[in-house]
């Protein structure tokens, strides 16, 4: 099963990026084989609608869950329609996040965790 972790770097030792739409990298990992792919996020400095765009990308890559810090309302609507589980509040090392997900420690949320524009430069990051 494929899941996506938003990451600040391109390896499993990188830190989880707390932003979804504007994360540095999407790490798409296979939970069974422990193989992964790091994809640089071209939406990092997009003008607007990056949550929608990043959500669309997740749907295209057919991931089953997204592990990240926060998700805004637009991205959440796309992910939810695509049937992708959204898990927020994830931090620390990517590898550990995957392990925790595999152990069933991380639970999906039912509502967006932050408002629009949260991931814009200069806005409150957590």
């Amino acid at each position: 099963m494929k899941i996506c972790i938003t990451s600040q770097g391109d390896s499993l030792d990188s830190q989880v990026d707390s932003r979804f739409g504007r994360c540095q990298y999407f790490i798409i990992a296979d939970t069974e084989s422990s193989e992964f792919e790091a994809i640089e996020n071209s939406n990092v400095s997009g003008m607007g609608g990056v949550g929608v765009q990043s959500g669309q990308f997740m749907a295209e890559r057919a991931v089953r869950a997204v592990l990240t810090g926060n998700v805004g309302p637009n991205a959440f609507r796309v992910l939810q329609t695509a049937g992708i589980n959204v898990i927020t509040g994830v931090s620390g090392v990517v590898k550990t996040a995957i392990e925790r997900y595999n152990k069933g420690e991380l639970k999906p949320i039912q509502d967006p965790s932050v408002d629009s524009k949260f991931g814009m430069p200069g806005m409150g990051k957590t």
Binding site: G46, M47, Q56, A59, N74, V78, T81, A82
Partner: peptide
């Protein structure tokens, strides 16, 4: 529609079109 939208105001997932009017 999603492909041509320059403002990311449309997503198409599971053959369903989602529109974000404020974008």
């Amino acid at each position: 529609c999603q492909e041509v939208c320059a403002y990311n105001a449309i997503a198409v997932v599971n053959k369903k079109v989602l529109i974000f009017p404020e974008l």
